[in-house]
């Protein structure tokens, strides 16, 4: 853990300490900046917000969105919810897992892509849906997902 990251984290804590219900916005700020919520930050957050380390740990791990380890360079999410299932997302997720050689919550060997499931992106009118980082993709077929993967790998 570099000191630089700790300085960043302390700045986020400083900026949020007086916000009502500060913990969620603070965790978002840290993850947006660092890419995940490092465990080393828990005690600093706990002290600033007058919480126990267990409470901070409990919140970080309750929510699917927060990560405790650095992800790959890009995050690919495949929607697993009903609307996308009705349009063949199961075959798509099998293809993606095979192509990337990883299961959900894992990162490819080259560090380029972390694969995550997601339960609805609100793009149900254009199922099956996926997203790469913050960009939603609609009517995703094998050809489209290959493009997304190639782009993420910088090919």
């Amino acid at each position: 853990m570099s000191d630089e990251i700790l300085v960043d984290i302390d700045q986020h804590i400083e900026a949020h300490v007086n916000v009502p219900g500060a913990l969620m916005p603070l965790l978002h700020a840290i993850q947006d900046d660092v890419g995940y919520v490092p465990e080393i930050s828990y005690s600093r957050i706990a002290k600033a917000l007058n919480l126990s380390v267990a409470e901070v740990h409990g919140v970080v791990t309750f929510y699917h969105h927060f990560r405790t380890h650095a992800p790959g360079k890009h995050i690919l999410q495949i929607c697993r919810a009903e609307s996308c299932q009705a349009m063949g997302s199961e075959a798509l997720e099998a293809y993606v897992k095979k192509t990337l050689g990883v299961d959900y919550h894992q990162t490819t060997a080259d560090g380029a892509i972390t694969l995550e499931p997601v339960y609805c992106l609100g793009n149900c009118a254009c199922s099956p849906a996926a997203s790469i980082d913050d960009q939603v993709c609609g009517r995703v077929d094998v050809e489209r997902v290959n493009e997304i993967i190639a782009e993420a790998r910088g090919a």
Partner: peptide, 20 residues
């Protein structure tokens, strides 16, 4: 911002979440 928990669409767990 929420953080990807479906149950937080339930109003009381939403309030818990807003409280941090």
């Amino acid at each position: 911002r929420a953080a990807g928990a479906y149950v937080c669409g339930e109003e009381t767990s939403l309030l818990e979440s807003l409280e941090g």
